[in-house]
Design a protein around this nucleic acid. Structure first.
Lengths: 147, 147
DNA sequence: ATTGATATTGATACTCAATCTCAATATGAA
DNA sequence: TTCATATTGAGATTGAGTATCAATATCAAT
């Protein structure tokens, strides 16, 4: 039983009564092969270089669709803007973002996750998702920043 | 020795060679008395009702100034927009945001804070600030949401 | 109190991401 | 192949936030 992201996406669309289009596929595949975090504008620029008829609105619509479905997540940048990353076969993780070189380091901490659940329970709050980002300087930029 | 927020702000401005203006004062005081989290637009609307000459740009400029100075912090909302809260005489805290009623619940957890520092140290990352927000449904909205 | 260097302000124009509209098109079940 | 309808793209529009710059306010020095 082979469950590629494409397959999973297709099944999701079907279950929702939505249609699989080449635009949706191409945006999904862009995200799957992207190494760094992709902004909507960047995705639009890169993909419309291939297919000049691709519309900006479709990129935003598809990103929202993928986000609602839980297939992609947002990442915040230090300047307040944001990008997306796919979540196929990737365990949950949070981010450390370097304010100088913009590098994003991923981290996971099961204890923090547990504590979050515990806190939520205390408040009878039903957690749906969270963002946890530490902004600062990565090792290299910390060294450079010494005045 | 009395150190009101106003005094602290004044001293900060002086130290930076900046000037204390009535606009800056009035925006600071708005934030101090605000119960809920204030958006730039809301601040602008409310304050310009009093002083019709107040400019939108000044609100943004002052918020940035206050943020740089560490006197106010951002809070993210579930829709991606954000507001501000002052940090005078308030210990650090993080947020749980209800996606339905938009209520913001504050929480603090020293263990999480410690773990964050520990993780940063592991990566030789110098943390400057962080955002940690849990989105979900508050007690009341969880009950309502049962289908 | 007056002066004067300069930080600040507000009106306005502008930018740019994101959304809306809607006619044309693509999808997929029958 | 047909057809109901989900989707798309072009372009207009919105709206938050920024840049510009002449007019003004601040405050330290007189």
């Amino acid at each position: 039983m082979k469950t590629s992201p494409q397959k999973v996406f297709q099944q999701y669309l079907e279950a929702q009564g939505l249609k699989l289009t080449k635009q949706r596929t191409s945006i999904l595949e862009y995200l799957l092969r992207a190494q760094n975090h992709s902004t909507p504008e960047r995705i639009y620029r890169d993909l419309s270089a291939q297919d000049a008829t691709l519309g900006r609105a479709t990129v935003f619509r598809t990103l929202h669709l993928l986000e609602r479905a839980g297939f992609v997540g947002k990442i915040l940048f230090a300047d307040g803007s944001h990008g997306y990353e796919h979540k196929f076969a990737r365990p949950h993780h949070d981010h450390m973002v370097c304010v100088d070189c913009k590098q994003v380091i991923e981290f996971t901490n099961p204890t923090i996750e547990k504590l979050q659940d515990q806190i939520s329970r205390e408040f009878q709050f039903t957690p749906l998702w969270h963002t946890h980002e530490i902004f600062g300087r990565c090792r290299k930029c910390s060294q450079k920043a010494v005045v």
